[in-house]
Computed example of a mutant assay.
Amino acid sequence: MDFSAEITLALVAGLVTGFIGESQEINTSINCALVLLASNNGADSLALAKNALRKDAINPFKGIRK
């Protein structure tokens, strides 16, 4: 992966993490740490989120049945 793609992935992962943290009202210091972790491993973070979304898309009623 080239440098510009890696920078873009890190930026997107950091922004998404920051937005989710703010919307969930997570403590600011914890949110900053999460943004640093997500942006440091941008490609890995987005791949993990994509896989989680795929699993939920395959089984949208997950958690309804006991």
Score class of each variant (00 low, 15 high):
65 R>Y: 02
32 C>I: 14
35 V>M: 15
31 N>R: 14
26 I>W: 01
14 G>T: 11
36 L>P: 05
51 N>D: 14
57 A>V: 13
40 N>F: 14
12 V>D: 08
54 R>M: 03
20 I>D: 00
11 L>T: 15
16 V>I: 15
23 S>V: 07
65 R>F: 06
3 F>D: 12
17 T>M: 13
6 E>I: 08
19 F>C: 09
9 L>D: 09
48 L>M: 07
17 T>Q: 09
52 A>N: 04
1 M>K: 06
19 F>R: 04
55 K>H: 03
9 L>K: 12
5 A>C: 00
25 E>N: 10
14 G>K: 10
58 I>M: 09
8 T>N: 09
2 D>K: 08
24 Q>R: 07
41 N>W: 04
58 I>E: 13
17 T>G: 02
53 L>Q: 06
40 N>T: 14
34 L>G: 14
17 T>N: 05
14 G>C: 11
66 K>P: 06
7 I>Q: 10
24 Q>T: 06
65 R>S: 08
23 S>F: 10
62 K>W: 02
53 L>W: 02
66 K>V: 07
14 G>P: 09
39 S>E: 01
40 N>V: 04
36 L>R: 14
10 A>G: 15
36 L>Y: 13
43 A>I: 03
34 L>A: 15
45 S>Y: 10
64 I>N: 01
64 I>T: 09
39 S>N: 08
9 L>I: 04
64 I>L: 13
63 G>V: 02
27 N>D: 15
39 S>H: 05
43 A>F: 01
33 A>K: 12
54 R>I: 12
26 I>D: 03
25 E>V: 10
35 V>P: 06
18 G>C: 06
17 T>H: 07
53 L>H: 02
28 T>I: 11
26 I>Q: 10
8 T>Q: 13
52 A>T: 02
2 D>P: 13
62 K>I: 07
3 F>M: 11
57 A>F: 12
33 A>G: 12
36 L>A: 15
64 I>A: 05
29 S>I: 13
50 K>P: 00
14 G>S: 03
26 I>N: 08
24 Q>S: 10
16 V>G: 05
52 A>Y: 02
51 N>A: 09
12 V>K: 07
53 L>A: 13
21 G>R: 03
6 E>L: 07
38 A>M: 08
13 A>H: 05
10 A>I: 01
28 T>K: 14
4 S>E: 11
31 N>L: 12
65 R>M: 07
47 A>W: 00
58 I>V: 15
24 Q>C: 06
50 K>Q: 10
43 A>Y: 07
11 L>D: 15
62 K>C: 04
35 V>C: 12
3 F>V: 14
27 N>Q: 14
42 G>V: 00
10 A>T: 06
12 V>M: 04
61 F>K: 03
56 D>H: 03
25 E>S: 12
22 E>A: 11
60 P>A: 04
2 D>Q: 11
8 T>D: 11
50 K>C: 06
60 P>Y: 05
13 A>C: 06
53 L>D: 01
39 S>I: 04
19 F>H: 08
52 A>G: 05
46 L>K: 03
12 V>H: 04
59 N>A: 01
32 C>A: 15
17 T>F: 02
55 K>V: 04
48 L>I: 02
13 A>G: 11
21 G>W: 00
55 K>D: 09
50 K>N: 14
18 G>D: 08
60 P>C: 00
56 D>C: 01
39 S>Q: 08
49 A>R: 01
33 A>L: 13
41 N>K: 06
58 I>T: 10
43 A>W: 02
56 D>R: 11
